[in-house]
Design a protein around this nucleic acid. Structure first.
Lengths: 225, 225
DNA sequence: CTACCATTCTTACGTCGTAAGGTGACCATA
DNA sequence: TATGGTCACCTTACGACGTAAGAATGGTAG
C-alpha cells in the first residue's frame, strides 16, 4: 500500500545515466554520491556495489559521453578529408552543447577513457588516407586540440551562454572601461554594431568554432604533401 | 626562549604567495584552507580575516599568476605582429610551465580576473595596429583560444610530463593494441623512429605548441586586409 | 525450511569549507 | 593610569562530502 516508488534494480548503466542527467540538470558540482543516490531512490552506499568509487563514476560518465561522440561517424570516406573531419567535429560539438560540463570534467581527469583512443585512431586514419605523413598527422592532432571532441578552449564566458562581459559592462562605468580597455571596447562596439542578430550576444560560439576549425583545416591542407 | 617560530604578520599577498607555492609543490588538490594555514603556521580560520572565502583565494591565485603573464610585454611594437604575438605567447607559456595547475584552475573558474581583460586588450591592439579589422581580430582571439595565456588544450597526458600512452602500451599487449588502433600505433612507431631524442618522449609539447601557434598566425596573416 | 548469495542499508570516521563568537595585543583618549 | 576600541588570530562547532565495515533484506535453489 505504501508508496512502492521506483524499484527497478540498479545497474552501472542506470547509475551512469542518472549521473549524466543530474549533471545536465544541475551542473557537475551537484553530482555527489548522496544526491545521485537520492535521485535513484537509494542510499549513497548502494552505489558502491556497482562502482568502486567516485573516480570510477566520473570515468564512466566521461566514457559514456565520449562513446556518444564516437558513435556518430557513419558515412564512408569518399569525400574530401576536410569536409569529412569538419562534419565529424561539428557533430561532436552538438554532443558537447547538450553536455556543457563535459569539457571541464574531461580536462580535470587524469586518465583518458580507452574509447577516446579509438576515436582518434579513426582521425589519424582519415589524415594518412588523405596523404598526410604520420609526422604531420601527429602535429595535426595536437593542433586540433579538443576540437575533435567538439569543444574549444573558451576563455571568455566558459559557462553562461550569453557571456558575462556585456553584463559587466552594463554594471561598470562604460567610459571608465573604454579608457582602461580601449581596443577591447572598440572591438565589442564594432562587432555589436554590424551583428545581424545582436540579441543573441555578440559571440556566436558556433561560428567561432567553425572559423577556428577551418583556419586549421586550410592551414593543414597547405602543408599536406 | 620558546620557539618564536615565524611571526611575520599575515597579509593577502603572503597568503596568495603561499597558496601558489603549495599548489606548485603538491598540486592544486592539496590547496585546502587547513593545509595552507598550516604552511603559514596559523589556524585555518585566520585566513578568513584576509580573504572572504576559498573562491576569493582561488580568484586571487589566478589573478596573481595572470599578472605575472601580463607583466612580460616590455618590447615596443615595431616588429611584425606575428613575431610580436609569438614571443608574447611563448613567454606566457614559460609561466604556465612553472605553474602547470593554472590551466585547469582557470578553466574551472566562472569569473575571469580583470587583469585578463587588460592583457587581451593589448593583443587586440597589436592586431588592429597591424591592419586587422575588429571583426577579424575578434575571430583571431577565439581562434587563439588559451594560447595567449601560454597553454593549449592537450587531451593526451594533461599531467604527467612524458605522457601516459607509452606506459599503457608497455603494459598492454602491443599486438592487441596495434589491431585495435592501427593508425595510432603506426603513427607512434613512425614518430618514435625518426625522433631525434626518443628519451624525451615522442610528444614535445614546446614544438607542438609552436606548430599550432604558427599555423594560426600564418592562417590569420593570409586573411588580413 | 534452510542455506546461500546478490543487493541495499545503517552507522561511523575523517576531511572539507566556514559561521559564530572568543582572546589577547596594541593604542588613543580621559 | 584606567578605559574602551580595533586589529589579528584562535576555538569550537556544523553540515556536506567520500567511503570503510558490516548488518539487513529478499529472492532462489536444494
Amino acid at each position: 500500500m505504501a508508496a512502492k516508488a521506483s524499484r527497478k534494480p540498479l545497474s552501472r548503466e542506470r547509475v551512469l545515466a542518472a549521473a549524466i542527467a543530474l549533471a545536465d540538470a544541475q551542473g557537475i558540482q551537484a553530482l555527489t554520491m548522496r544526491r545521485l543516490a537520492s535521485d535513484l531512490n537509494v542510499e549513497a552506499m548502494s552505489l558502491y556495489y556497482h562502482l568502486p568509487d567516485k573516480e570510477a563514476l566520473l570515468d564512466g560518465v566521461v566514457e559514456t559521453v565520449i562513446a556518444e561522440v564516437g558513435r556518430l561517424d557513419p558515412n564512408g570516406g569518399d569525400e574530401d578529408w576536410r569536409t569529412r573531419l569538419r562534419q565529424q567535429f561539428l557533430a561532436a560539438r552538438q554532443v558537447m552543447v547538450r553536455h556543457p560540463w563535459v569539457p571541464g570534467l574531461l580536462g580535470s581527469r587524469r586518465t583518458i577513457p580507452a574509447s577516446v583512443y579509438g576515436y582518434y585512431d579513426g582521425i589519424v586514419g582519415t589524415l594518412v588516407g588523405a596523404g598526410f605523413s604520420y609526422h604531420l598527422a601527429h602535429r595535426a592532432l595536437h593542433a586540433f586540440g579538443s576540437m575533435p571532441l567538439g569543444f574549444a578552449q573558451e576563455i571568455f564566458s566558459p559557462e553562461s551562454a550569453g557571456g558575462s562581459m556585456e553584463v559587466d559592462a552594463a554594471e561598470a562605468d562604460l567610459a571608465v572601461m573604454a579608457a582602461a580597455l580601449p581596443h577591447l571596447t572598440a572591438m565589442v562596439a564594432a562587432e555589436v554594431h554590424d551583428s545581424t542578430d545582436p540579441a543573441l550576444g555578440w559571440c556566436d560560439s558556433q561560428i567561432e568554432f567553425e572559423f577556428t576549425l577551418d583556419l586549421l583545416l586550410n592551414g593543414l591542407e597547405r602543408l599536406r604533401g
